[in-house]
Amino acid sequence: MKTVKKIFKTALDEGRTFVLEDEAKRVMREYGIPVPPFAPAATEDEAVARANEIGYPVVLKILSKDIMHKSDAGGVKVNLNSDEEVRRAFQEIMENATQYGKEKGIDVDLSRGVIVTRFVEMGTETIVGVTKDPQFGHALMFGLGGIFVEVLKDVTFRLIPLTEIDAREMVYEIKAKKILEGIRGQPPRDIDALVEIMLTVSKMVEENPEIVEMDCNPTIVYEQGKGAVVVDARMVIESASSD
């Protein structure tokens, strides 16, 4: 896993504990966690080229060490279907980010441009997260996305490393589990694929304890047999592993 360590080293060398989305996704791809096709693009022309390689529709998201919460800064444009839309989105994102920086009184670094990713189909939104507790160490969180996590805080935790039994218990522990089992005639969701992601994240953190926080949010789960995919990833590392 040399690639992973190199990515973390690059971030730390640049004085960042915040791992950029494209970096986080490269780490996840190394571990075989499914993520939609993606590529960084520093300029408008590059963004168009990458969008054509990936295939429409695409999403553009700001890539900057100064912006952790991309939507808050107007740094996300979804469902783009043509070169023209990509160009316009790129310009708007840069303008929004500059404006956001002015409001916050920071000089936002725009040199990395954006990450271009495939705009994925809708499915059931879940969140798989990692945190490091000062008393108990690393723990993994699971819950359904959207209001389930924001308002109802319908989430469950286990210490890392997880066993498969732990992961399956977590899926059935949340109050909204029926949504995953399939309600109102909908087919059940691909729980095996979701469990696989949870176990791989657990392994990834076990092998890279410098990861102190992570949100795979949303992790979209499709119907049984159609898999699951981590659409957005936010990751924070610490400089020296304290373990």
């Binding site: 952790m68 969140i127 000062p134 469950t156 935790f157 210490l159 732990d166 926080e213 992570m214 949100d215």
Partner: peptide, 29 residues
């Protein structure tokens, strides 16, 4: 409850973990 952990968190997961749920999970496991 370890509220300090919650304050320091910048992720969703970290902010939800302050509610004693990690101790709970650890005991269960």
């Amino acid at each position: 409850r370890s509220e300090r952990a919650k304050e320091a968190a910048s992720s969703h997961t970290g902010s939800l973990a302050g509610l004693d749920s990690i101790a709970d999970a650890a005991y269960r496991q």
